[in-house]
Design a protein around this nucleic acid. Structure first.
Length: 487
RNA sequence: GCCCCCAUCGUCUAGAGGCCUAGGACACUUCCCUUUCACGGAGGCGACAGCGAUUCGAAUUCGCUUGGGGGUACCA
């Protein structure tokens, strides 16, 4: 069997989009599953919208997601260069080949002429198909047009290619995920493969690049289905082997429109900034269109790869809902090694003086606050009361909890007793339990007793484990805060 | 307008003619656990878009309708 080679070819006109990340993932999974190569090619043809910053973002995001490529701009490879702008001089040769074979011709039409044709088609409710008026220009006519200063674009002759390689104008191909797909090529129209300024168009450049890079399977979004027929014809006209194609459904926003900025984060890097773990993100995105055979949804990419079958990928679009992503992120946070978690949480604790805690205390803090985290960024609010001498008291808590007679009594008693306590986890646990018992006998629920203390020390009624919290906050600060809460 | 793709709970999906009174996950919800919140555990709610056809039998096959998405560039 031929060598399996797949690729992801992002255009650096923005940060790596989750949709692109999913396409990259499926290509990666396919390569891993079949022992093939995963190639990264940067399609930076559109100089206007391209920037180095975006290229770096794409590299970094892909790496963060664990989608490492075997060949690419940075690591090189046998079939480079892998940056499209560096491949400009290789396209003319193939344009010439097509011209020589009669599968392409020069077109001198002006934008105005083309526009008129389109309007005419729209008026007649017909699909717009280029008139081919330049297809049979004589050398004299071309020379005349050139003398006027016109520069030709090169068009691909769809009909000639179709007739040379297909009996019917209806061209078919067997899609890896969607099955048999077809298109009436007479509706395509002779498209431009090289612009009058000499640069290749997308449909032409991808074919040349994929052909030269020996890409065997092209897995991409279904927005490319209509391009596929054009590309197949080009491969054939060039006498090249046509790769296998697989088209994935798109990822849509909850309102079923294209996932864009107004729906929140779209770039992988934005998700990371928001506190998502790349492992959770990639796992979540894998589940959009693919289901594990054993029903276990949380699993690392290498296990997904072993279970992956491109033919089982759903051919319909899927909606990107945060609920499940959030749940998955919380699950991944729970699975994180404590030292790893401590590091990953730091960016979200940058506003606090972490040096005020010993490593032991920081570890303890993370241990007792990690449980409810959905996003790493939740720690910013959840850990607030572990820092500083004073604590911010929620007004509602002040009124509902601290201002009550019972609470005031609890606090006074606590202050009295606690000043003699030894501030260790074990002792705190014991003393607090006795303390609750003491009030319970007086008819005060343990919950109420603890609320008073929690409110005074943390300013809230909910939060991390009390014993651990008091331990990390320390005796001095605890007593100070309780004292301040007493009227 | 024209062309193409898609269609199972709110969402992601399992299901490839009888195993389906349609299974799982998230969300929602009830209860349990509990010093709070949470975590966790046990339940509940909840779908085959509609209509025809094929068949002894259809979520599964076919057609139409409807709905959604994509494409229609000298953008990628």
């Amino acid at each position: 069997m031929e060598d399996i080679r797949v690729r992801i070819a992002p255009s650096p006109s923005g940060n790596l989009h989750v949709g692109t990340a999913r396409t990259a993932l499926f290509n990666y999974l396919f390569a891993k599953k079949h022992g093939g190569k995963f190639v990264l090619r940067i399609e930076d043809t559109d100089a206007e919208r391209t920037s180095q910053e975006y290229i770096d973002n794409i590299f970094d995001s892909l790496k963060a997601l664990g989608l490492n490529w075997d060949e690419g701009p940075d690591v090189g490879g046998e079939y480079g260069p892998y940056t499209q702008s560096e491949r400009f001089d290789i396209y003319p040769k193939y344009v010439q080949e097509l011209l020589d074979k009669g599968f392409a011709y020069e077109c001198y039409c002006t934008p105005e002429e083309l526009e008129a044709e389109k309007e005419e088609a729209a008026k007649n409710k017909k699909a717009y198909v280029y008139s081919k008026k330049c297809e049979n220009l004589t050398e004299e006519e071309k020379a005349k047009l050139r003398a006027e200063g016109r520069k030709p674009a090169i068009r691909f002759s769809v009909e000639k290619a179709q007739k040379a390689f297909h009996e019917s104008p209806i061209v078919h191909f067997d899609d890896l995920v969607k099955g048999n797909l077809h298109q009436d090529t007479s509706l395509i129209g002779d498209f431009v493969i090289m612009k009058s300024n000499g640069s290749p168009t997308y449909n032409f450049a991808v074919v040349i690049d994929d052909m030269l890079m020996k890409i065997s399977h092209i897995i991409r979004g279904e927005d490319h289905i209509s391009n596929t027929f054009k590309q197949i014809l080009i491969y054939e006209a060039l006498g090249a082997e046509v790769p296998k194609f697989g088209h994935l459904g798109m990822i849509l926003a909850p309102d079923r429109s294209k996932l864009s900025k107004r729906h929140g984060a779209t770039a992988v890097s934005e998700f990371v900034e928001k506190g998502y773990l790349t492992d959770a993100l990639i796992n979540f995105v894998a589940l959009l269109g693919w289901a594990p055979s054993d029903g276990v949804e949380i699993k690392p990419v290498d296990e997904i790869a072993a279970d992956f079958r491109i033919g089982e990928v759903s051919s319909s679009n899927s909606i990107f809902e945060y609920d499940k992503l959030n749940w998955m992120n919380s699950q991944y946070i729970k699975m994180l090694d404590i030292e790893d978690l401590k590091e990953k949480l730091k960016p979200f604790l940058k506003d606090y003086d972490l040096s005020s805690l010993t490593d032991e205390q920081y570890t303890k803090m993370v241990e007792i606050t990690r449980e409810p985290l959905t996003l790493l960024s939740d720690i910013t609010n959840d850990a607030k009361y572990f820092f500083g001498k004073d604590v911010e008291i929620d007004p509602q808590v002040q009124a509902d909890v601290l201002d009550t007679e019972v609470s005031q009594d609890v606090l006074k008693t606590f202050l009295e007793q606690a000043k003699d306590w030894e501030w260790t986890e074990e002792n705190l646990h014991e003393k607090l339990e006795a303390f609750r018992g003491f009030y319970k006998e007086k008819g005060i629920k343990p919950k109420v007793t603890m609320w008073a203390i929690r409110a005074a020390v943390t300013g809230r009624t909910r939060g991390a484990d009390m014993v651990g919290s008091l331990e990390v906050i320390g005796k001095d600060t605890t007593l100070y805060r309780v004292q301040k809460a007493i009227k």
